[in-house]
């Protein structure tokens, strides 16, 4: 399998501030690749270098086989980009937005008409095609932009935090849309996001970036398996004995038990063993289990494990692209 994106030791500095510090990775064709990282980690800078909006300070990046610096024009023809900010023209209709971008990419008229119809159907905006974008909701606008980014049939699709600011229903709609489009077209997708559930659900592989460096890269399952396990069992019992929390503390793998009336929360390094032992102990003591939930390792745990819990509130040097109108999400 060939690589749609190859990044080798790429660096970006703004004065003394190093936003991206020697990152290397490759994205295979047809893959959905997620870039995760806290605010200011360098995700957006990285994606901007890959879509030719920022020249790298050092290192190389190939997108669809073309160098982002020396073959920028070929890269631009091969990629579709959804920037962080909502960049569709509010005064234009949904269809007009797509037409203008199709013309900017030089898509022939007959192909253009067919493609726009197909895309509007895919993002479920066909019935709204004549509406001005300013009358659409945030989720619908994002769908317009997804369609706009695909109007020239790119091979690689970059989405920079496409669901930030959307409500859960709109977010789910965007995920489903991306999965559907991906299944219909031969497309490689690179997505940056803050939402771990989004990355878990969509991405084949995930790279975690922190302080401009790549700190982890693998599939969501492997990443989850790579960190020390901490399962949380939450169980409630009908009339448990008074020493029940002490008995639960004796179960295999249990580190901590917190009781709140008849509800017990157990932290365990071995969720399955603890669950089995707890059910057996309850049966032996004739205590009825009224509810039980086991929470396994999530990508949130992986994220916190690799990036730490420190808040990223330190001041950064403002990028040249910062503006009073845009709220940048790094």
């Amino acid at each position: 399998m060939t690589n749609a994106i190859e990044v080798r030791e790429i660096v970006k500095r703004f004065g003394n501030f190093t936003a991206v510090d020697g990152v290397s990775f490759a994205v295979e064709e047809g893959e959905i690749f997620g870039l995760l990282g806290p605010n200011g980690a360098g995700k957006s800078t990285l994606i901007r270098m890959l879509v030719t909006l920022l020249p790298p300070t050092a290192g190389t990046a190939l997108v669809s086989g073309f160098n982002v610096v020396t073959q920028a024009d070929q890269v631009r023809r091969a990629i579709g980009v959804i920037p962080q900010a909502m960049t569709s023209d509010l005064e234009l209709s949904v269809e007009e937005n797509l037409i203008i971008y199709a013309k900017l990419y030089g898509v022939p008229r007959d192909t253009r008409t067919r493609l726009i119809h197909e895309l509007l159907e895919s993002v479920e905006l066909l019935q709204w095609k004549d509406k001005q974008v300013k009358h659409l909701s945030g989720g619908m606008r994002r769908r317009v932009e997804i369609a706009r980014g695909l109007v020239h049939e790119p091979r690689v699709f970059f989405l920079d935090e496409p669901t930030t600011g959307l409500d859960p229903v709109s977010r789910t709609a965007v995920w489903e849309m991306l999965q559907r489009i991906k299944s219909q077209r031969k497309l490689t997708i690179l997505i940056t996001t803050h939402y771990m559930d989004e990355a878990d659900r969509l991405c084949d592989r995930i790279a975690i970036v922190d302080h401009g460096k790549l700190v982890a890269l693998d599939s969501p399952l492997t990443l989850k398996a790579s960190i020390p396990v901490t399962n949380v069992l939450e169980a409630s019992f009908a009339a448990p004995p008074s020493d029940w929390d002490a008995r639960l503390r004796q179960l295999p793998g249990v580190d901590q038990v917190v009781r709140h009336e008849n509800v017990f929360r157990l932290s365990s390094g071995n969720g399955p063993a603890t669950t089995l032992a707890m059910m057996e102990a309850a049966a032996a003591a004739h205590v009825t289990v009224t509810s039980l939930s086991v929470q396994s390792t999530t990508l949130d745990d992986v994220f916190v494990h690799y990036t730490g819990r420190a808040l990223r509130d330190t001041l950064q040097e403002a990028s040249v692209t910062d503006s009073p109108f845009m709220i940048r999400r790094r």
Partner: peptide, 17 residues
Amino acid sequence: IDDKARGLHEGYLVTPI
């Protein structure tokens, strides 16, 4: 300049124009 500040130009700059 308003379009530029809103990021609309990013949309143009990633096209082959």
